[in-house]
Structures are given as C-alpha cells and as structure tokens.
C-alpha cells in the first residue's frame, strides 16, 4: 500500500484546534456579527448603540442607493465594481497568460529568475506603488504627454480620475495573482504534448486552443478568481487614481463605516457584495467544471 497513511487519533485534532479556534472566532463569528449588523435598526449609532430589529429594509435601501444605475454613464458603485473588476480580470488574463506562458515554455534556464521577478515588485507597499502610478499617469506625466502628442487625448485630456487609470491600477496590482496560478498549471503540461500538437495542427493557434488552453484551465479558473474577488472589493485604486465618478463599492462601505458611522447600511452592502461574489464564483466554477478548487 504505497498511498499515504494518515494517522488517526487525538493528535490531529489537537494540531487543528488553535487555528480553527482563531478562524472561528475572528472569521466565522464575525460573519454572524455582520449579518446581525446588517439587520440593526438604522436609527441607532455607534455611540448610542444599535437595536436588533430585523430591519431587512436596510438591504433594499442599500441596493436602491448604490446598486442601481443612475444613468447610462453612471452605473452606481455596485455595478461599477463588478464591471471594473471583470474588465481588469480579462486584461490580467491576457497579460498574465502571455507572461506565464513565456516563463513556463520559453524562459529556459531563466525560468526561476523570471518567476522571482514577477513577485519582487509586489513586496513594495501596494499604496506606494499605486502612488507611483498616480505620478506616471498624472496630468504632467509622461503617458499623458505622449497620448496628447499623438492626439489620442485632447489638449486638456487626462487619465487620472478616469476609468482607464482605475482599471490600469487594478490590472497592475492584481497581475501576480493571475500569473502564479497560470504558471503553476502551464508548468505541469508535458512539453511533448505541445510539440505533438505542433505536428498535428498546421496552425499553431489551433494547436494552442486544442491542447494548451484546455490543459491550463485549472490555472485560468483559479487565476481569474484570485484576481476578480479582491478586485471587486478594492477601493484603493479607485480612491487614489480615480475620482468620485469612479467610486467602487469598497469606497462606499469604507466611508459608511469610518466616516458616516452608518453600520447597518455598511454591513448590508458588505453582505450584498459577498453574496453576489459567492453566486458568481459558484456559477463560474460550475461552468468551468473545476470544482477541485474548493
């Protein structure tokens, strides 16, 4: 019996207890607190205390306020978050796939170095890097000057405070979350399969979509999830690179908690975000047929 034999008995439980207790106390139970807070009487405050009134109306109010589009150009924070996150995920997938493919199949002995370089920039503070982008994409910055010179942007056109800057920031910040899982599944593919596909299909693109792409699907699924989920909840890029017109749901929740002190509304919005994400993830994972992820 070559397979791994797992020991039975008390030790396993003892090893689990500290971590499970921690996660239960500070991850699971807080969810109940969040659900409870989302049903509090909205008339209360942090200072006077909240009353549990099963005020389901909080959800409708939150959806009405933040969940419906105001106009064709203003989708409201909730829809905008998913739109930005979705578009960023697609761009990340394209960039990340090229990079992961290059590392897995083309980098040769530079493979490890390139992998290290993928991660290296992300050890520098998220915020400091985003501020650097603010400078690069700024009105006097090099990107805007070039774009103005070639007339893609008008003379007073700008990138900051536009969806372009926010999405660019999100793409940049979450790229490694896409590259690493993609690399992991591409690296497992037997090179001979790819060579064989080169023999079978005259067109390399056909070969790619018949062989490489299907084999890399587990990486695609986990990469897109790892990018989309944090991107949908992010507000740092929207805050630093955007304006109030690019507010995402994270900005709203953050403001409601820290500035407006409207806990019931903030909690309801958090719940809505979580539920929508879970629904989308389940649908997506089922469609992609890779439930092993969980």
């Amino acid at each position: 019996m070559a397979e791994m034999t797992r020991r039975r008995g008390l030790t396993g439980y003892l090893l689990l207890v500290p971590g499970v207790v921690w996660l239960a106390l500070f991850f699971v139970i807080p969810f109940y607190s969040l659900v409870a807070a989302s049903l509090f009487d909205p008339g209360g405050s942090v200072f006077s205390g909240y009353e549990m009134t099963w005020h389901v109306q909080n959800y409708w109010d939150a959806l009405k306020e933040y969940g419906k589009p105001n106009s064709w150009s203003d989708w409201g924070p909730l829809l905008r978050s998913f739109w930005y996150a979705g578009l960023s995920t697609v761009i990340c997938l394209v960039l990340g796939y090229v990079l992961a493919y290059a590392i897995a199949f083309k980098a040769g002995r530079w493979k490890n170095l390139m992998l290290v370089l993928v991660i290296a920039p992300f050890f520098t503070s998220f915020l400091v890097r985003t501020l650097a982008w603010k400078l690069i994409l700024g009105d006097d910055g090099p990107v805007v000057s070039v774009l103005q010179a070639v007339h893609i942007l008008g003379a007073d056109g700008r990138l900051l405070a536009t969806p372009v800057a926010v999405i660019a920031g999100i793409v940049y910040n979450f790229l490694p979350f896409m590259v690493l899982p993609l690399y992991a599944s591409l690296d497992k593919i037997d090179h001979r399969l790819i060579e064989a596909s080169g023999d079978l299909y005259a067109n390399p693109f056909v070969g790619f979509f018949k062989v490489t792409w299907p084999l890399s699907l587990p990486g695609v699924v986990s990469g897109t999830l790892l990018t989309f989920i944090p991107a949908a909840g992010d507000y740092i890029n929207a805050q630093l690179l955007g304006s109030t017109n690019q507010r995402m749901i994270g900005n709203v929740i953050q403001n409601l908690f820290t500035d407006a002190n409207d806990y019931p509304a903030a909690a309801a919005l958090s719940m809505i975000l979580m539920v929508v994400i879970i629904a989308m993830v389940l649908f997506y994972v089922r469609r992609a047929g890779t439930e092993e992820l969980l």
Binding site: F31, S33, L34, G233, I249, Q254, A266, L294
Partner: peptide
Amino acid sequence: NLLIFLPMATPEIVMGSSLLALFVA
C-alpha cells in the same frame, strides 16, 4: 478545507467590516 479556503476568497473589505462588526457588537 472550506474554512481555510474561504478567507482567501473573501474580499478584504468584507472581512474587515465583519471583524469590525464583531468588535462593536
């Protein structure tokens, strides 16, 4: 496995706000 996977799949804003809700409660 689910308990370990979920914190990685939860948006930070949700984790942060639920913890805050707990501390307040």
